[in-house]
Protein backbone atom coordinates (compact mmCIF):
# COMPACT_ATOMS: atom_id res chain seq x y z
CA UNK A 1 0.00 0.00 0.00
CA UNK A 2 2.74 2.41 1.02
CA UNK A 3 4.54 1.55 -2.20
CA UNK A 4 1.46 2.32 -4.27
CA UNK A 5 1.25 5.81 -2.82
CA UNK A 6 4.93 6.43 -3.59
CA UNK A 7 4.49 5.26 -7.13
CA UNK A 8 1.45 7.45 -7.70
CA UNK A 9 3.42 10.44 -6.38
CA UNK A 10 6.37 9.51 -8.58
CA UNK A 11 4.38 10.01 -11.77
CA UNK A 12 2.68 13.10 -10.48
CA UNK A 13 -0.86 11.81 -10.17
CA UNK A 14 -0.66 12.10 -6.41
CA UNK A 15 -4.23 12.14 -5.17
CA UNK A 16 -7.11 14.56 -5.69
CA UNK A 17 -6.84 16.34 -2.33
CA UNK A 18 -5.15 19.73 -2.42
CA UNK A 19 -3.78 20.65 0.98
CA UNK A 20 -3.83 24.22 2.33
CA UNK A 21 -0.07 24.46 1.86
CA UNK A 22 -0.41 23.56 -1.83
CA UNK A 23 -3.17 26.16 -2.32
CA UNK A 24 -1.05 28.77 -0.58
CA UNK A 25 2.00 27.96 -2.71
CA UNK A 26 -0.09 28.14 -5.89
CA UNK A 27 -1.50 31.53 -4.82
CA UNK A 28 2.00 32.86 -4.12
CA UNK A 29 3.15 31.70 -7.57
CA UNK A 30 0.16 33.32 -9.29
CA UNK A 31 0.86 36.55 -7.43
CA UNK A 32 4.48 36.57 -8.58
CA UNK A 33 3.46 35.92 -12.19
CA UNK A 34 1.09 38.91 -12.09
CA UNK A 35 3.89 41.09 -10.67
CA UNK A 36 6.25 40.07 -13.47
CA UNK A 37 3.64 40.76 -16.15
CA UNK A 38 2.82 44.16 -14.66
CA UNK A 39 6.53 44.98 -14.43
CA UNK A 40 7.05 44.07 -18.08
CA UNK A 41 4.22 46.33 -19.23
CA UNK A 42 5.48 49.14 -17.04
CA UNK A 43 9.02 48.96 -18.47
CA UNK A 44 7.65 49.01 -22.02
CA UNK A 45 5.33 51.96 -21.39
CA UNK A 46 8.06 53.96 -19.61
CA UNK A 47 10.51 53.33 -22.44
CA UNK A 48 8.09 54.32 -25.20
CA UNK A 49 6.90 57.29 -23.16
CA UNK A 50 10.43 58.57 -22.66
CA UNK A 51 11.28 58.01 -26.33
CA UNK A 52 8.18 59.95 -27.42
CA UNK A 53 8.98 62.77 -24.98
CA UNK A 54 12.66 62.99 -25.87
CA UNK A 55 12.08 62.98 -29.60
CA UNK A 56 12.10 66.62 -30.74
CA UNK A 57 12.73 67.93 -27.21
CA UNK A 58 16.07 66.33 -26.26
CA UNK A 59 17.17 64.69 -29.52
CA UNK A 60 16.61 65.57 -33.17
CA UNK A 61 13.83 63.30 -34.58
CA UNK A 62 15.95 62.92 -37.70
CA UNK A 63 18.10 60.49 -35.68
CA UNK A 64 15.59 58.71 -33.44
CA UNK A 65 12.20 59.29 -35.08
CA UNK A 66 9.43 58.66 -32.49
CA UNK A 67 7.19 55.77 -31.45
CA UNK A 68 4.08 57.43 -32.84
CA UNK A 69 5.72 58.07 -36.23
CA UNK A 70 7.00 54.48 -36.37
CA UNK A 71 3.53 53.19 -35.45
CA UNK A 72 1.94 55.29 -38.22
CA UNK A 73 4.49 54.06 -40.72
CA UNK A 74 3.82 50.43 -39.78
CA UNK A 75 0.08 51.03 -40.08
CA UNK A 76 0.49 52.57 -43.54
CA UNK A 77 2.68 49.65 -44.70
CA UNK A 78 0.08 47.22 -43.41
CA UNK A 79 -2.81 48.99 -45.12
CA UNK A 80 -1.05 49.34 -48.46
CA UNK A 81 0.06 45.71 -48.30
CA UNK A 82 3.72 46.54 -48.82
CA UNK A 83 4.60 45.13 -45.37
CA UNK A 84 3.44 41.68 -46.36
CA UNK A 85 5.06 41.89 -49.80
CA UNK A 86 8.47 42.49 -48.24
CA UNK A 87 8.02 40.37 -45.12
CA UNK A 88 6.88 37.33 -47.09
CA UNK A 89 10.03 37.48 -49.22
CA UNK A 90 12.23 37.62 -46.11
CA UNK A 91 10.33 34.84 -44.34
CA UNK A 92 10.36 32.65 -47.44
CA UNK A 93 14.13 32.97 -47.87
CA UNK A 94 14.67 32.39 -44.13
CA UNK A 95 12.51 29.25 -44.07
CA UNK A 96 14.03 27.82 -47.24
CA UNK A 97 17.59 28.53 -46.11
CA UNK A 98 16.84 26.99 -42.74
CA UNK A 99 15.35 23.80 -44.17
CA UNK A 100 18.13 23.26 -46.72
CA UNK A 101 20.94 24.03 -44.26
CA UNK A 102 19.38 21.95 -41.49
CA UNK A 103 18.72 18.92 -43.71
CA UNK A 104 22.28 18.81 -45.09
CA UNK A 105 23.79 19.57 -41.68
CA UNK A 106 21.78 16.82 -39.99
CA UNK A 107 22.59 14.20 -42.61
CA UNK A 108 26.32 14.95 -42.65
CA UNK A 109 26.39 15.22 -38.84
CA UNK A 110 24.97 11.68 -38.60
CA UNK A 111 27.40 10.34 -41.19
CA UNK A 112 30.46 11.92 -39.58
CA UNK A 113 29.31 11.07 -36.06
CA UNK A 114 29.02 7.39 -36.94
CA UNK A 115 32.24 7.23 -38.97
CA UNK A 116 35.39 8.35 -37.16
CA UNK A 117 37.67 7.94 -40.20
CA UNK A 118 35.52 10.11 -42.45
CA UNK A 119 35.35 12.70 -39.66
CA UNK A 120 39.13 12.69 -39.22
CA UNK A 121 39.77 13.10 -42.96
CA UNK A 122 37.47 16.08 -43.36
CA UNK A 123 38.19 17.69 -40.00
CA UNK A 124 40.75 20.34 -41.12
CA UNK A 125 38.59 21.39 -44.10
CA UNK A 126 35.45 21.68 -42.00
CA UNK A 127 37.36 23.72 -39.42
CA UNK A 128 38.72 26.04 -42.11
CA UNK A 129 35.30 26.56 -43.71
CA UNK A 130 33.72 27.05 -40.31
CA UNK A 131 36.25 29.76 -39.47
CA UNK A 132 35.19 31.91 -42.45
CA UNK A 133 32.57 34.42 -41.33
CA UNK A 134 29.61 33.31 -43.43
CA UNK A 135 28.76 36.95 -44.12
CA UNK A 136 31.94 37.08 -46.20
CA UNK A 137 30.40 34.48 -48.48
CA UNK A 138 27.41 36.69 -49.32
CA UNK A 139 29.12 38.59 -52.19
CA UNK A 140 30.16 35.27 -53.74
CA UNK A 141 26.61 33.92 -53.50
CA UNK A 142 25.31 37.08 -55.18
CA UNK A 143 27.70 36.47 -58.09
CA UNK A 144 26.63 32.84 -58.28
CA UNK A 145 22.90 33.10 -57.69
CA UNK A 146 22.06 36.70 -58.64
CA UNK A 147 20.35 39.38 -56.59
CA UNK A 148 17.11 37.39 -56.32
CA UNK A 149 15.93 35.25 -53.45
CA UNK A 150 18.33 32.38 -54.25
CA UNK A 151 21.39 34.20 -52.95
CA UNK A 152 19.63 34.98 -49.64
CA UNK A 153 18.63 31.35 -49.27
CA UNK A 154 22.26 30.37 -49.85
CA UNK A 155 23.55 32.74 -47.14
CA UNK A 156 20.99 31.46 -44.62
CA UNK A 157 21.61 27.85 -45.49
CA UNK A 158 25.38 28.19 -45.14
CA UNK A 159 25.04 29.62 -41.63
CA UNK A 160 22.40 27.10 -40.53
CA UNK A 161 24.37 24.19 -41.98
CA UNK A 162 27.36 24.61 -39.69
CA UNK A 163 25.36 25.09 -36.51
CA UNK A 164 23.18 22.04 -37.15
CA UNK A 165 26.07 19.94 -38.47
CA UNK A 166 28.29 20.55 -35.44
CA UNK A 167 25.46 19.95 -32.98
CA UNK A 168 24.32 16.75 -34.67
CA UNK A 169 27.90 15.49 -34.79
CA UNK A 170 28.43 16.21 -31.08
CA UNK A 171 25.07 14.63 -30.25
CA UNK A 172 25.85 11.42 -32.13
CA UNK A 173 29.26 11.14 -30.44
CA UNK A 174 27.56 11.64 -27.09
CA UNK A 175 25.24 8.60 -27.31
CA UNK A 176 25.76 6.29 -24.32
CA UNK A 177 27.13 3.00 -25.75
CA UNK A 178 25.09 1.01 -23.22
CA UNK A 179 21.91 1.95 -25.14
CA UNK A 180 23.44 0.77 -28.42
CA UNK A 181 24.63 -2.54 -26.96
CA UNK A 182 21.38 -3.24 -25.15
CA UNK A 183 19.33 -2.49 -28.26
CA UNK A 184 21.51 -4.67 -30.48
CA UNK A 185 21.32 -7.58 -28.03
CA UNK A 186 17.52 -7.20 -28.02
CA UNK A 187 17.74 -7.84 -31.75
CA UNK A 188 17.92 -4.35 -33.27
CA UNK A 189 19.79 -4.01 -36.59
CA UNK A 190 21.86 -1.04 -37.77
CA UNK A 191 18.89 0.95 -39.09
CA UNK A 192 16.84 0.26 -36.00
CA UNK A 193 19.67 1.38 -33.72
CA UNK A 194 19.92 4.58 -35.78
CA UNK A 195 16.18 5.23 -35.59
CA UNK A 196 15.42 4.16 -32.03
CA UNK A 197 18.68 5.04 -30.26
CA UNK A 198 21.09 7.37 -32.09
CA UNK A 199 18.63 9.93 -33.45
CA UNK A 200 16.45 10.24 -30.33
CA UNK A 201 19.51 10.37 -28.09
CA UNK A 202 21.11 13.08 -30.23
CA UNK A 203 17.80 14.93 -30.49
CA UNK A 204 18.40 17.33 -27.62
CA UNK A 205 21.66 18.42 -29.27
CA UNK A 206 20.05 18.63 -32.69
CA UNK A 207 17.11 20.61 -31.36
CA UNK A 208 19.46 23.02 -29.60
CA UNK A 209 21.26 23.44 -32.94
CA UNK A 210 17.99 24.04 -34.78
CA UNK A 211 16.82 26.49 -32.15
CA UNK A 212 20.02 28.50 -32.25
CA UNK A 213 20.12 28.51 -36.04
CA UNK A 214 16.64 29.87 -36.76
CA UNK A 215 17.57 33.43 -35.72
CA UNK A 216 20.81 32.97 -37.71
CA UNK A 217 18.79 32.05 -40.77
CA UNK A 218 16.95 35.37 -40.40
CA UNK A 219 20.27 37.18 -39.95
CA UNK A 220 21.66 35.54 -43.10
CA UNK A 221 18.67 36.54 -45.17
CA UNK A 222 18.64 40.14 -43.95
CA UNK A 223 22.38 40.50 -44.57
CA UNK A 224 21.87 39.22 -48.11
CA UNK A 225 19.08 41.77 -48.55
CA UNK A 226 21.31 44.57 -47.24
CA UNK A 227 23.95 43.85 -49.82
CA UNK A 228 21.86 43.56 -52.89
CA UNK A 229 18.13 43.08 -53.31
CA UNK A 230 14.98 44.70 -54.57
CA UNK A 231 12.59 43.31 -51.96
CA UNK A 232 12.53 42.15 -48.32
CA UNK A 233 12.69 43.78 -44.90
CA UNK A 234 16.48 44.04 -45.12
CA UNK A 235 16.07 45.89 -48.42
CA UNK A 236 13.58 48.33 -46.82
CA UNK A 237 15.99 49.09 -43.97
CA UNK A 238 18.98 49.56 -46.24
CA UNK A 239 17.01 51.73 -48.68
CA UNK A 240 15.59 53.88 -45.84
CA UNK A 241 19.09 54.29 -44.42
CA UNK A 242 20.23 55.73 -47.75
CA UNK A 243 17.38 58.25 -47.58
CA UNK A 244 18.00 59.09 -43.89
CA UNK A 245 14.44 57.88 -43.23
CA UNK A 246 14.92 56.74 -39.59
CA UNK A 247 11.18 56.16 -39.13
CA UNK A 248 11.24 53.39 -41.75
CA UNK A 249 14.50 52.02 -40.34
CA UNK A 250 12.91 51.69 -36.90
CA UNK A 251 9.72 50.25 -38.38
CA UNK A 252 11.79 47.61 -40.21
CA UNK A 253 13.77 46.81 -37.07
CA UNK A 254 10.54 46.48 -35.11
CA UNK A 255 9.18 43.98 -37.64
CA UNK A 256 12.39 41.91 -37.48
CA UNK A 257 12.33 41.94 -33.67
CA UNK A 258 8.70 40.86 -33.59
CA UNK A 259 9.24 38.05 -36.12
CA UNK A 260 12.31 36.84 -34.20
CA UNK A 261 10.42 36.81 -30.91
CA UNK A 262 7.45 34.92 -32.40
CA UNK A 263 9.76 32.31 -33.93
CA UNK A 264 11.46 31.86 -30.55
CA UNK A 265 8.18 31.28 -28.75
CA UNK A 266 7.12 28.70 -31.35
CA UNK A 267 10.50 26.96 -31.03
CA UNK A 268 10.29 26.81 -27.25
CA UNK A 269 6.94 25.06 -27.42
CA UNK A 270 8.13 22.64 -30.10
CA UNK A 271 11.22 21.80 -28.07
CA UNK A 272 9.23 21.19 -24.90
CA UNK A 273 6.99 18.78 -26.79
CA UNK A 274 9.78 16.90 -28.56
CA UNK A 275 11.84 16.54 -25.39
CA UNK A 276 8.91 15.77 -23.08
CA UNK A 277 10.70 12.56 -22.02
CA UNK A 278 13.33 14.68 -20.28
CA UNK A 279 10.68 15.64 -17.72
Amino acid sequence: MAQNIDEAAAIGSGGAVRSAAVAEWDAAQAGRRRMVLLGRILVGVLFLGFWEYASGRLIDPLFVSSPSAVGMRLWRWTVTGSLWTHLSVTLYATAFGFVIGAAIGFALGLLFGRNQTVADIFDPYITALYSIPKIALAPLFIIWFGIGIESKIAVSASIVFFVVFLNTYAGVRDVNPIYIHATRIMGGGGGEVLRHVIIPSASSWVITGLKVSVPYALVGTVIGEFMSANRGIGFIISQATGLFDTTSVFAGLFVLGLVGALINVALRHTEAWLLRWKG
Binding site: I178, Y179, T183, R184, P200
Partner: peptide, 20 residues
Protein backbone atom coordinates in the same frame (compact mmCIF):
# COMPACT_ATOMS: atom_id res chain seq x y z
CA UNK B 1 29.15 -11.05 -32.99
CA UNK B 2 26.45 -9.44 -30.85
CA UNK B 3 24.60 -12.33 -29.21
CA UNK B 4 20.88 -11.79 -29.74
CA UNK B 5 19.95 -15.04 -28.00
CA UNK B 6 20.54 -13.63 -24.53
CA UNK B 7 18.93 -11.05 -22.29
CA UNK B 8 21.37 -8.45 -20.96
CA UNK B 9 20.99 -6.17 -17.98
CA UNK B 10 23.54 -3.87 -16.33
CA UNK B 11 23.83 -1.60 -13.32
CA UNK B 12 23.46 1.38 -15.62
CA UNK B 13 19.94 2.05 -16.82
CA UNK B 14 19.66 0.68 -20.31
CA UNK B 15 15.96 1.57 -20.56
CA UNK B 16 15.64 4.18 -23.32
CA UNK B 17 14.62 7.48 -21.67
CA UNK B 18 12.83 8.80 -24.78
CA UNK B 19 10.41 5.87 -24.94
CA UNK B 20 7.54 5.23 -22.55
Amino acid sequence: RINTHVGYMTQQDSVLPWRT
